[in-house]
Amino acid sequence: MEFSPKILALICTYCTYTAADMAGSARMQYPANVRIVKYLCTGRIDILHIMKGFEAGADGIMVSGCEAGSCHFLEGNLRARERVEYAQHLLEECGLGAERLVMYEVAASDAPKWVIAVKEMTERVKALGPNPLNSGWVPEVVVPKELELAVQR
């Protein structure tokens, strides 16, 4: 079976999420490998969130925020970039490799760019192979009991 990477996308609600939403509304096709986590601003993304993502078995993580200069909170995306660079350094140190973590900038109106970013990330992670932490690990879908009950209510 072909390797289908699990990619975590940590994105800001104002720019990238809007672009991703627009891509969906416009029926643009892109690989279904990304799992989106929406932040109010990429400035809120902590290096620990990224590390825990890899610990949990993500094959790649993409952080995507507003374009430089257009952050709704002025410099959240710039801080995110600094943190991503530091996280890349930490990943390199522990042998997982910095290439599994990439920062993108996608403006709210730029749905095609989001599609390109996801395609590029998917190709990149496919080339890198699975996260060595879950070699032989088969993902299973488990719906927690509480969640099931909540849905029934």
């Binding site: 590390m51 825990k52 890899f54 610990e55 930490l90 140190e93 522990c94 042998g95 997982l96 932490l133």
Partner: peptide, 10 residues
């Protein structure tokens, strides 16, 4: 701790 887990897990 996270780095150690990632390094050892590999």
């Amino acid at each position: 701790a996270s780095q150690l887990k990632l390094a050892r897990g590999q």
